[in-house]
Amino acid sequence: MADIRSALADHAAPGRHGTPGQAPGVVLREVSGAGLVQVAAWPDTVGAAMARLAELAGIAAPETTRIATAGTDVTLFRLAPERFWIAGAAADRLREAVAGAFAPEEAVVTDLGHSRTVLRVSGPEARAFLARSIAIDLDPAIFPLHSVAQTALHHVGVLVHFAAGAPEGDAFDLYIPRSFALSHWHWLTHLAEPFGYEVREALAAASG
C-alpha cells in the first residue's frame, strides 16, 4: 500500500531560514502519522457518549471546548458541545473500535484522518510568531497547557492546541485543512523569517 503523502511533501525540507544568528526563534515541523476521528452525539446522548469515549481512549473526555485532555498517544478535543475529536497516534488504533461503539441514535463517527495537516510550532519566539497570524491571547495565564482555540488563520478555520510544555519548550499544534496546508506553510514561513526559523523532520505522532 502506498505511503500517505504529506501536503507539504517536497516543501518542508529540514533547514535553517530567515534572520541568521544564534538559535532560531521558531521551530516548525509537521506532525505526521496521526489519525483524526470525530464522534458527534446529541444533547440527550452526549453524557453517555463522553463516558464511552473516555473508556475507549483511556483518558477523561474534555468538559469544555477550551481545554483538551491528553494521554501518551491520544488527545481528545471538544469542538462543540456535542462534537469530539480523537487525535494522535491512538486515533488510528481506536478507529474501528470507536466506529462500532455507538448506536446510530447515540452518536455518529466520521474519519477525518486525511483532512488535516498538523503543524507543530515551538521555539522561544513561538507566541510572538503566532501573534502575527492569530488573534488569540496566548499568554500562559490566559491560555494554559492544553488550551484549544478554533480561530481564523489567514482566512481559514484552524484549530490551535497548546500541545506540550517543558522540558522541550512550549509547542502549539495547528490543525490546518489539508487543501490549504501548503499555502499556509508559505504564509507561516514568510512570517517566521524575521524570527529566524528552523524546519525539522516531521515528528511522528506516536512520540506525542
Binding site: H154, V156, L182, S183, W187
Partner: peptide, 12 residues
C-alpha cells in the same frame, strides 16, 4: 499572500 491558495491532493 493576498489570499490563501487551495490545492487538490494531485496538484503536484
Amino acid at each position: 499572500h493576498f489570499k490563501p491558495v487551495r490545492r487538490t491532493p494531485m496538484d503536484a
